[in-house]
Design a protein around this nucleic acid. Sequence first.
RNA 1: CUACAAACCCGAGCUAUCGUUCCAAAUUUAUUUGGAAAGGAAAGUCCGGACAGCAAAGGGCAACCCACCGGUUAAUAGCCGGCUAUUUAGUGUAAGAGAUGCUUCGAGUACCUCAGCAUGACAAUAAGAGAAAGUGCCACAGAAAAUAACUAUCUCAAUGCAAAUUGGGAAAAAGGUGAAAAUGUGAGGUAAGAGCUCACAGCCUCAAUUGGUAACAAUUUUGGCGGGUAAACCUUGGGUGCUGUAAUGCCACGUAUAGUAUCGUUUUAAGAGCGGCUCGUUCAAGAUACAGGGUAGGCAGCAAGAUUCAAACAGUAAUGUUUGAGCCAGAUAAAUGAUAGUUUAGAAACAGAAUCCGGCUUAUGAGGUUUGUAGUUUU
RNA 2: GGUCUCGUAGUACAAUGGAUAGUAUUAGAGUUUCCGAAGCUCCAGAUUCAGGUUCGAUUCCUGACGAGACCA
Length: 135
Amino acid sequence: MAKTFSYNSTEKLKSRKQLDALFTKGKSFLVFPVKVFFAEVNNESDAPMKVGVGVSSKHFKKAVDRNRIKRLLREAYRLNKIPLTEFIQINNKKIAVFFLFIDKTIPAFSLLQNKMPTVIAKLIKSLNENNIANT
RNA sequence: CUACAAACCCGAGCUAUCGUUCCAAAUUUAUUUGGAAAGGAAAGUCCGGACAGCAAAGGGCAACCCACCGGUUAAUAGCCGGCUAUUUAGUGUAAGAGAUGCUUCGAGUACCUCAGCAUGACAAUAAGAGAAAGUGCCACAGAAAAUAACUAUCUCAAUGCAAAUUGGGAAAAAGGUGAAAAUGUGAGGUAAGAGCUCACAGCCUCAAUUGGUAACAAUUUUGGCGGGUAAACCUUGGGUGCUGUAAUGCCACGUAUAGUAUCGUUUUAAGAGCGGCUCGUUCAAGAUACAGGGUAGGCAGCAAGAUUCAAACAGUAAUGUUUGAGCCAGAUAAAUGAUAGUUUAGAAACAGAAUCCGGCUUAUGAGGUUUGUAGUUUU
RNA sequence: GGUCUCGUAGUACAAUGGAUAGUAUUAGAGUUUCCGAAGCUCCAGAUUCAGGUUCGAUUCCUGACGAGACCA
């Protein structure tokens, strides 16, 4: 595990197809102010996790604010992703996740930094339930 | 000195840890090392280009745009310089009004302010061709908002004692309203009058001379006196082909029959394309070959250029030329971040490249420079 | 990335360049009723903002701001 905190381009959720599938078929839960979409995928592609980040352009009209929030979300995810990667490696899964920010004001980084572990924990828990239900 | 307003400059630096995108090198081929990484507006999309495509991208009309002159530029509705017009600051004047002072208290006089008149910027503004080609409109008020009519007026004739009435002629002065009312003064002329005629003044206009590259200015001269509105229609002159980098070219995948090329047929009948109309022009069925709907992958376009910085020279300036040095984002759900410390008075404004440039417009914290206004202190 | 349209009372809409900016509804007051509702009477409330053209601008022109639609 050399690249623990990294978040490079292979790990990003890019394909429009995968995104559409995630929003239509995937499951979701809410840990305010972040809504999480997730789904298991059977893709043969490289990375085991595909993660994306988004903000509504209705709530934030200026591109500067949207970029700021997306950066903060990425940073928070990057610093708290270790439990998720370990879980994925153990269970040999491939997942796609999308974090959507739904508040209407720009958050402080400390808030997201505090929330993100609970988000990851909930994600792992729900993935586990899904696994049990499938088997 | 303080406050406010406007214009311009600037738009944080360093260190550590963890990370992102691109480039180069190295090797163990997924790691390491090194380098670079968002603005003055990247914004609005208001103008102008580069570049690319379009079977013809053709002519005319329509449509749209521009509008003093010259320069500048790849180009412009930008910029620079000039011309003209308007306005104002200021200056001058003094017959009006007001305040104050002086006096012999009837008034006179001095000075200041306001209004008026003249002049008038080096300041500000100008969508700054044409209202003398034509059409339309100008509410309310007013006789009338433009060939003029109406009321009142002048005159002649008839009737009548007179007042006046009727008919013919004149058509200027008068009508007090409005944002705007038919150029002003004097003389001649006439029954009375009238730009009806003349002189002077004002304005418009034709031509000539002089100065200026030109707009234009000055002088002389021809004709004239017709209010405003062209950001009403319009006229004149000039210009514009259309679409836009998700353009477009190539590769991969792949196969409904839209398309392309060649051959060929029919007939100007209908239809379709060439932006809207018209002229003109191209096109049919069929055969062969290429190739393709859809999906959303890759490469090019795509980062060395009307380039950046510095100096010199030319030019009033915008700007240009030469020399030297430099390479300075290039993503594709879309990179520039987070935390801590430190410098600092403070790190807090507007704000995030998406094909690239030149302008314009708008948004901008703190600090700095300049200008203006107001206040305070000192001399 | 590009193209286009529209901003009028709290709300939905009108208004040839001529003014006290209109209609419906809503809000408020009064009247009616034992009390409400409905009805009736009265009243309040607006041209997105900043400039310009014009004697005069909701209307015409320019810029800004906001909202919406379309193309790919």
